[in-house]
Amino acid sequence: MNPAEIAAAATPLPGAEVSLLSMFWSAHLVVKMVMIGLLCASVWCWAIIINKVILLSRTQRAMAQFEDVFWSGASLDELYATLSSRPTSGMASLFVAAMREWRRTVQGASSSFMGLQARIEKVLDVAIAREVEKLESNLLVLATVASASPFIGLFGTVWGIMSSFRSIAASRNTSLAVVAPGIAEALFATAIGLFAAIPALIAYNKLQGDVAKKQAQLEAFADEFSSILSRQIDQRAAHDQAA
């Protein structure tokens, strides 16, 4: 038997010892829980990221579509009639909220235009806040995971190294082969922590920027729309006075 064969026959044992699963199973309970928690955090983070990306792209598409329709010169009343029948998002919901307030005033018996401008602006602000809140929800989770999971992983590592040092002390054997598996499994916790934290951090920054951009677009639209409505209000008021 040549030495190569002996080596090949001997390797499976240590190889099995250091595989990912056995590393996990041989870890201390605390380290195990840290690993599982971090893995869950990573899953959750990615779920949020995927959802947010889809939501943002959908919102973007809807806003572009709405703006096309809005600036095409079609009648706002017709637009309102089509939009109010179904749930809306983004600029459309702003438009629907403002139009609802407008129509309520115009069709109302009092038909006083005195406070209409202020009311419309309030309604638009509320609608913007609601929309932004919808876009922004859960982003804080990403921020939390990004900042906390390295520490959690580090905690697992420190715990694992601590326990492996304790077992060194107990067995009075300091050869690297004895120490290495414990330290490897401890470092595995930090690896998972970083694995969860890095995408979360990147995605948080990216999504936060996207949401801010959407918010700015919404505010711009709200200003434009409220200026259009205020022009209408003034015309109505002048018309009424003339009449």
């Binding site: 990912l20 699963l21 990573s42 959750w44 990615w46 779920a47 959802n51 947010k52």
Partner: peptide, 23 residues
Amino acid sequence: KPGLALSGCIHLLLLAALLLSFS
């Protein structure tokens, strides 16, 4: 909201790949 299912699948695949490559 396909995020959770998707990310769960991705993580499972990743784990499997890691298990294979780390074995």
